[in-house]
């Protein structure tokens, strides 16, 4: 099922075009990352599909219109910051969300367990650390067992420990079979968590598809040796080697992913070069990202 379909969405803030004719489809079960540098329109996109911002043109459809305007009750989301009443405790704040979601009265033991806040459930929200606030918000998105969860930079502003906790919580959610839509400017995050990725820049769609297909087919090979001059000369002489460059004493180049790497290393050996460093790796999404958004 098409969980979300965005068609020709545009929005400007004054003269600034924040979204420019965006199209996007999310299918049920996908973990879609919305990737883009700061200011690329991620939050604006999420704000529009969540009904708090209005688009200048274009439209979007949730769940193929099956919930008749009540679709937000089937979506759990946090946008930018965790938003709660500072003078109420975790339980009370979750109960407010529960009432809005029209979910029968319940204890939140499982949810608080999932985000490791059970022992602090009676503390006021204002006494929480940023990481705890973020985790409470994640718990709140799961109230009423929504079909879709949407996160906007869920690890923003957290320390490494907090980032780890939030990511592991997200991974646990992802394994529950929910459709996830997550905005981030951190590739690593998207690469680790998502099955699909949409890349935008200055409000324009650059690429969308499975994470694997957005990755290029090339392998990156790093070699270092006593005689890099000779090495570079040799690499240049080969037809199947591209984009040769030297960085900090390491020569980097790109080859097709089907290339036999051990053959390749042998051929270097055969001309009398002894590599002190040899690594073959898939081009990382990070480099792709920088390339695509350049």
């Amino acid at each position: 099922m098409e969980v979300l379909k965005i068609q020709n969405l545009s929005k400007s803030y004054g003269k600034l075009k924040a979204l420019d004719d965006l199209n996007l489809v999310i299918e049920s079960g996908q973990i879609m990352g919305l990737l883009g540098p700061n200011g690329s329109g991620k939050t604006t996109t999420l704000g529009i599909i969540l009904g708090i911002l209005s688009a200048d043109s274009g439209n979007y459809t949730w769940f193929e219109n099956k919930y008749d305007g009540k679709h937000r009750l089937r979506i759990g989301s946090i946008l930018e910051t965790p938003n709660f009443f500072p003078y109420l405790n975790a339980d009370q704040n979750l109960d407010i969300v529960r009432q809005i979601k029209k979910v029968p009265k319940q204890e939140f033991d499982d949810l608080l367990e999932l985000v490791q806040l059970k022992s602090r459930r009676k503390s006021n929200f204002r006494t929480f650390s940023l990481g705890m606030k973020q985790r409470l918000a994640i718990a709140a998105t799961l109230i009423g067992d929504p079909d879709v969860v949407i996160f906007d930079e869920p690890t923003n502003g957290l320390d490494p420990q907090g980032i780890m906790e939030v990511r592991s919580t997200l991974s646990r959610i992802a394994t529950r079979g929910k459709t996830v839509f997550m905005a981030s400017h951190i590739l690593d995050e998207v690469e680790k968590i998502c099955t699909h990725v949409t890349i935008i820049k200055r409000g324009k769609l650059l690429a969308t598809g499975p994470v694997g297909s957005i990755l290029s087919k090339d392998l990156t090979i790093e070699v270092a040796s006593q005689n890099n001059e000779l090495l570079i000369g040799f690499l240049r002489s080969r037809e199947d080697v591209k984009n040769i460059l030297q960085k900090n004493g390491i020569v980097e180049c790109q080859v097709d992913q089907k290339l036999d790497v051990s053959e390749f290393s042998k051929s270097i050996f055969n001309i009398g070069i002894v590599p002190t460093h040899f690594v073959a790796r898939k081009k990382r999404l990070e480099e792709e990202f920088l390339e695509i958004t350049k």
Partner: peptide, 16 residues
């Protein structure tokens, strides 16, 4: 207080 703590925004997001 709901504007300042963004709970107004969150209420709409949550489905009100």
């Amino acid at each position: 207080i709901e504007i300042n703590n963004k709970t107004l925004r969150q209420s709409i997001i949550n489905g009100l």
